[in-house]
Design a protein around this nucleic acid. Structure first.
Lengths: 342, 342
DNA sequence: AGTCACATTGGTAACGATACCAAGAGCCCG
DNA sequence: CGGGCTCTTGGTATCGTTACCAATGTGACT
């Protein structure tokens, strides 16, 4: 491979200085329009490709926004990233993504790697981090956003909601329908911090209603699949056959649980009531549709992007943007009496 | 924000030269182990963070691998990216992701932006590109990998399979069970190149069996959702009530179609046979399970990564790595006679 | 005609790391 | 005891762009 084409070559070919070529490739710079057109045409003809690595170093700007998410194979996080990417790309910012696999040690490594790239801002999922990860974020000198959670002691900005509170709403909904023997599926304590928060919220709400919360089925480490939801349902029915309702940590496990009921001939909601979390598409289309909570994942991403764009332009005070998740009542918790009235 | 800490500061604090600090941060370089330890400790204490932007420029290496995918909200592509990322990160390479939204013009812009970052290799989904995008890729001077397809005239390397061929297998399977009035859902001609390929394969196979292929239901531009699958099923039943089987462009639309049948009291597979594509988790857990094709998305990602790692180390001839998708026969196409025998 | 403001262009140094070359220390060997 | 070798360390130039400052040209206005 030969030496690559640089601005110098373009400048020579276009009969201008390197600086003018540089300006032609930037927006909001004063270059005569015809000069710019000539330069861009010459550049295209030569096959010149702008070199960001040099620009990054000199200008001390990368236009990267670093993001860590537990997994890309999760429609909720994917939605957040999609919303984030879309808004940011309109501002010329590019998302640099790293996966943590629900592991804080891996998150720490990811954060360290990302910061080396000198992003303009960094977004992390969740509010729990290793001590060193936290120190890295605090010392990074760029806006830090914690998302999908409301940390007690935030590092910088926050765009999220209380996972625990969503489950209180859910338990209230079920209790109002007269259900008492309610189980919970999921919420691994070690790795799934948001799942564990939801379980904690579930337990608190159950206690508040004077209901026993001893029907807790672990479904293994995250991410919890549909299959694991089905298996958890199996275990639940073996342990507590008289269960009336089951609150699942996500729509995927909820759908798995639903299929297990279908296989056993248990009617939902008549014989078993099921709820999920996340408002995945499947919740709105399966039969029956699933009662769930919509945390507006895409909106979270868009809010983060908006926050970043504003903060980069003009540094701001710490912002805590709370998202209000919405209970979506659907067929899987419809009151049987209502169904009969139809 | 004050001037950031550089290697110079670390060198001074550790009492060594900048070069030695640089070496301490690299692998496979000859530094006395104790010297390295001292330097790394001093760096950590100072809160020094290695600056990749400078290293990238000087060394002419970025350790980026650029990737374009239509959408992150697609479990198949997400699996490919996950497999790719995982393998590459073991080699110190980082994925730089851009989305095309199933739009070639957007793909062209994405490719241009990505190439400016000077990646070590670039992976694009599909084999159809704008003329300029193709020229950019050809002139990039780095390995180019086209994935998820078998382009007639590849730019560089290929890791993929024939989308058309998978549908032939599917039609053969249905024809062998005696179905004749078979419909196809999905495959937008304008935007969904892989979907259109599948539809083409479907039509060719139908013709080969002497069957009419006039039951083609467009389901709108990609990505085709579960809901759009359900709506397409509705339209299909209105137009061709006597349809025996329906081949869907993906498992998501297939599941949507399945739910539509459930809502109408149509039994699957007794009254309607349904197939999907992608081997999404839902296909293996819904009731009944869905016959589908597994294109091994994660394996595609891992193969791409392997190809890149090898090619970067030692430039190679053009490689065409064919993935062999697998027909997964499940409940939604089970022969009724077999079911009765149970 | 002279002054000033503005638009446009150019020259030079610098961003913070690494490639490349060189040199000193320590060791083995004949 | 000197030559050759390896291991470790240091000095200097440089990657390709942009920040900064300066110079020129143009038109408006006094």
């Amino acid at each position: 491979m030969q030496r690559s084409i640089t601005m110098k070559d373009v400048a020579r070919a276009a009969g201008v200085s390197v600086m003018t070529v540089s300006r032609a490739f930037q927006k909001d710079t004063s270059v005569r329009p015809e000069t710019r057109d000539t330069i861009l045409k010459v550049a295209e003809d030569l096959g010149y490709v702008f070199d960001s690595t040099a620009a990054n170093l000199r200008s001390q700007r990368t236009d990267f926004v670093a993001v860590t998410i537990p997994s890309i194979n999760n429609a909720n996080f994917a939605d957040t990233v999609a919303g984030l990417s879309e808004v940011l790309s309109n501002e010329g910012l590019q998302v640099l993504l790293a996966y943590t696999n629900y592991d804080m040690a891996q998150e720490e490594r990811a954060i360290e790697q990302l910061l080396r790239r000198r992003p303009e801002a960094i977004v992390v999922t969740g509010g729990k981090h290793t001590v060193r990860a936290r120190r890295l974020l605090e010392g990074a000198g760029i806006p830090v956003i914690e998302a999908w959670d409301l940390p007690a002691n935030p590092i910088g900005h926050v765009v999220g909601f209380s996972n625990a509170a969503t489950m209180e709403v859910m338990v209230n909904h079920l209790a109002a329908q007269g259900h008492e023997r309610i189980a919970f599926i999921g919420g691994d304590v070690v790795a799934d911090t948001r799942g564990a928060d939801r379980r904690r919220g579930f337990m608190a709400a159950m206690k508040a209603h004077g209901l026993s919360c001893d029907r807790l089925i672990e479904a293994g480490p995250p991410p919890i699949s549909m299959r694991e939801g089905a298996q958890a349902m199996e275990r639940l029915l073996a342990l507590h056959p008289d269960t009336q309702a089951v609150v699942c940590v996500s729509d995927l496990s909820a759908f798995g649980a639903l299929t297990e009921c279908q296989r056993r001939g248990l009617r939902v909601p008549q014989d078993m009531v099921i709820t999920g979390f996340g408002a995945y598409e499947i919740a709105s289309i399966c039969v029956p549709t699933l009662t769930t909570v919509n945390p507006f994942p895409r909106k979270i991403g868009e809010e983060i992007a908006d926050l970043i764009v504003n903060t980069i332009k003009k540094p701001t005070e710490q912002q805590i943007r709370k998202i209000a998740p919405e209970l979506v009542v659907a067929g899987s918790t419809e009151k049987v009496s209502e169904m009969r009235n139809r």
